[in-house]
Design a protein around this nucleic acid. Structure first.
Lengths: 214, 214
DNA sequence: TGTACATCAGTGAACGCGCGTTCACTGATGTAC
DNA sequence: TGTACATCAGTGAACGCGCGTTCACTGATGTAC
């Protein structure tokens, strides 16, 4: 991330070890428990065992900490989607394969929202737009952000001849909307009451709809 | 709302005129400007020209005020959807009619979200679930809540023979998810950057997808 | 290898802020005689 | 119709709270000689 001199990474910290990391971790834990509004600068410093003002050596202000936590949350979402993709059985048939991969992206998204609602909400809380959705800080292990994983999968769908090329433009917004909306309604909205089985069932039917309707 | 004695509605208020109403209106105005977290009890009393403690004659606490504002916001959403339905040209063909009505529900939803993002976010901020989504306080002029308008329209779709009966169960969740997700991404999320024309275009394509995919 | 010095990560006290909520009160209103 | 009284909507002062942010400081660390 920095220069390439030897020892540079050692000198990054003085006393604490790595306070920036500790604050980011504490902030992420807060977000996990209560969403973006739970990311309180003073509480993060408390958890790191440090005076409140120490945070200002590493983050310009509370918003900067929250942005960092938000990137971490998006990265975690990307990892969840990657895991779902990686769990797929190998398929010869490119069409079936592409279809299965699109489903996996959706399933991973929904699974993450259900398992980590606080982080999920935080991932979409930042002052970010489509451009910053491509920032490497938000990527998973494979180097792609959640949005890029979706985009890539839709491209595969076109190449496999499943999705007509003229339907491709903006298709990511359609698929994303459907899955994102269900996630929001389930974790934060009027569908909060649905139990896990029902939620999964509706989720699969939603993915059917997207597959049919795209 | 109360008893049925004559004059009861006159006696509801003493000095202010109707402080409950004034606080609700002020709260709604705050929500319009900044969403649910902008509904600040002290600010509402300030706008009503009254001491902060006066609010407690009409609302148990801040949450009660916010719940009332939330109901008002849902009601406004219902009115927007009704307006969209009312603007539809008369059609003989029941199938085309039902299809057009479903589109109108979606369009009204998206239009409201775009025109009143603060109220839209507030409408989904309450501690409510599916059961309270049927509360009359959340209805529009026709007496139906947004959710009930959607449900009724899907029923028409079945009766008109457009939607196979076996696909009907839970269909409201699918349609709702798609439209809700796009609304959230557009007003609060990474699609914030899209201009109005693009947003409308994506909205119509999303409704195509729902129609095809249901 | 040993000493003097500069660096700068973290300290600790303080700031002003606005919030939600409480409580004893007051005085305009509607009501009973 | 006129007077005494009870009601209760709104007052005003105060509470404790936790937040984000600032600033002059200190003292462990790495570095230069």
């Amino acid at each position: 991330m920095r220069g390439s001199e030897t020892g540079a990474s050692k000198r990054v910290t003085y006393r604490h070890g790595d306070l920036r990391r500790a604050l980011l971790d504490a902030g992420t834990e807060l977000a996990r428990g209560g969403g973006p509004e739970a990311v309180v600068l003073r509480e993060a410093t408390r958890r790191a065992g440090v005076a409140p003002s120490a945070a200002y050596r590493h983050f310009a202000d509370r918003r900067a900490l929250l942005d960092a936590v938000c990137s971490a949350a998006q990265s975690a979402l990307a990892v969840a989607i990657e895991a779902e993709l990686a769990g797929l059985p190998c398929k010869e048939d490119p069409a079936g394969r592409a279809r299965a991969r699109l489903r996996a992206v959706g399933t991973g998204y929904l699974r993450f929202a259900g398992a980590e609602p606080g982080l999920f909400r935080t991932a979409f809380s930042a002052s970010d737009n489509l451009r910053s959705a491509a920032s490497p800080a938000r990527a998973g292990g494979g180097g792609l952000t959640p949005f890029q994983l979706l985009t890539a999968t839709l491209d595969e769908l076109v190449e496999a001849g499943v999705l007509p090329r003229e339907r491709r433009p903006n298709a990511e917004f359609l698929a994303w909307s459907a899955v994102h909306g269900l996630a929001m309604l389930l974790i934060d909205g009027p569908l909060r009451g649905l139990d896990k089985t029902q939620a999964q069932h509706v989720g699969q039917r939603l993915l059917d709809m997207v597959e049919q309707g795209l």
